[in-house]
Design a protein around this nucleic acid. Structure first.
Lengths: 150, 150
DNA sequence: TAATATTGTATGTATATACATTTATTAATG
DNA sequence: CATTAATAAATGTATATACATACAATATTA
């Protein structure tokens, strides 16, 4: 695939900062396209997978919708609706919080844990092959991204 | 904001490759959230802005829908519908191609060019302030992203 | 304690993404 | 030339994003 200028057939960018923004958007699309095809056979979306991972990270401790929202990769997403989707598939359990009836307690189900286990192996494999960088370069990329956001 | 582990409250990643994927998804969300707020007052979406930029890059030469699609940052998006949206706002002109009636010729309108000019200044400013990296680091990031995609 | 503010979640609406399918037109082949 | 294949664009459907608003429950305060 190579340089972003060739990939989207744009001659040149104003400066490396503007190029970086486009480059990040484009790389994101590259990643999610492959992720989607991986999740497709399991009838689950990347965001739903992410919510399941957040839930498992709680080790059985109930989580509220707003807490899920906070940890999501996309802060503006809609945890409420994703939880509903996952519940209808039996991948999590949602029940009223006894101490505060505004809140709901969300816990991943056994079915959810199984699916996650199965998917995770594949995701980790794919993530490796997706990124055509060596160990040193990936670490460098991670540092730059962490710094980028300030 | 700092390290991704703190931002999404995840303790650790399997390896730097899996971390990089999450880091890229998260950084993307960071970028588009700010871009969205920039475009909002102009009643235009980031993808619509991108289509206008592609059209202007043609310097008045008509472009087909599939050619727009190819150059889009998100290959799986739907150029057809975006063109329709922009047309309804008077930002581009769409007409049947005389030599091949399957195709449509799309050209940016004067109104579109004006809007683009106004927006572009703001976008370039914002892109600079978004990215908390120095010149050397941004260039490094661009090189890594280009290489990442293989 | 009554009135008000805040919080947690759900819902409504518009846009975009992802992918399959349809329709119209042109190209290719027997 | 008729049939079939290929192509360009549009459309259909499900999901997700972005943001505003509604609603119920709890917290605050006057």
């Amino acid at each position: 695939m190579g340089k972003i200028e060739d990939a989207i057939r744009q001659r040149e960018f104003k400066d490396p900062y503007n190029k970086a923004v486009v480059n990040l958007l484009f790389t994101h699309s590259y990643l999610v396209t492959i992720q989607n095809s991986l999740f497709k056979p399991y009838d689950i979306s990347p965001e739903q997978y992410n919510v399941l991972r957040i839930l498992r990270g709680q080790n059985g401790k109930p989580t509220t919708v707003s807490s899920i929202q906070e940890r999501m990769l996309n802060k503006m997403s809609n945890a409420s609706r994703l939880v509903e989707k996952l519940k209808s598939k039996g991948l999590l359990i949602r029940e009223e919080c006894p101490t505060d009836r505004r809140q709901v307690d969300v816990v991943i189900s056994d079915k959810g844990l199984e699916l996650l286990k199965e998917l995770e192996v594949k995701v980790e494999e794919v993530n490796h092959t997706l990124i055509h960088l060596n160990d040193e370069e990936v670490t460098q990329l991670n540092d730059l991204l962490d710094k980028l956001r300030g």
